[in-house]
Amino acid sequence: MASLADPAILSTRGDGTRSLSVAFAAMVAFFAVAPFFLYPIFLMQALCFALFACAFNLLTGYVGLLSFGHALFFGWASYLCAHAAKSWGFPPEAAILFGTFSAAVLGLVAGFLAIRRHGIYFAMITLALAQMMYFVAVRAPFTGGEDGIQDVPRGRLFGLFDLSHEMTMYVFVLVTVLAGFLLIYRIINSPFGEVLKAIRENEPRAISLGYKTERYKLLAFVLSATVAGLAGALKALVFQLASLTDVYWTMSGEVVLMALVGGLGTVFGPVVGAFLIVAMETYLAQIGQWVLVIQGAIFVFCVLAFRRGIVGELAAFLRVKL
């Protein structure tokens, strides 16, 4: 049976790290130049979603656990960061840390429940837990219901940099997202990451080798939730808004789409996928509900004919790691 996120490359030239370094340099160069051609706010949105999709990919692409509830961590971190910055007057770095830490705690609880079941049950449980927390967000007094938390102050980073300046904010978002990206890269290439991949390929065998796979899965879940939370907290500051959209199931679906389009289980796939999907939604916004239809069609197409995603296909074609 084909497992989720089949390793795209069976044989690569060299040890594969050169292609990764080249691709990483190209990505950094692109994002360094991009604000001169594209709207910074669009780029920041794409960067936040790229980090979100990378976090999702850590769990789904590398451990093979499909989470259909990642909006829970993204959206709640967004709410809590916005609340801390606006109502408690936290400086931006503290507000983001608070949102991220909350996502880690939520990830610990949700992960503890979800890893008790496998496969599609895991997906259904994460979806259901996220929907529960969506209803909590609808009811909770501090979230502002349909209005969300608006006019979140961006504040001064470390008391020095004024983030209300668009380019300063852009640099801050870029540096944070790249740090998150490198953290995930470090995780998947650590001995811990190798065990995760072993669980993806054959969990019973990993258990028979003496690994306590439950613990590995739980830690991977918490890490994924934490980074997703970091992305959500950043997004709250970028848009100065936290709203119900970010905790709704459609958001969980969108991150699946981004990772799938870019390539599950690839290092750069989620970034490419997030960029494309955000671009599509931005430029097709005027055609209203058809966006939903197009998204659905992309899902169907990817599952039937394009399971490696863009970066996965590219890597297989060039026979390199990407």
């Binding site: 259909f68 599609i120 699946v256 899902f299 599952v303």
Partner: peptide
Amino acid sequence: LDHVYGLILTFGL
């Protein structure tokens, strides 16, 4: 394929 692909496909539908 892995069961989750069926879930993703029907989600798209």
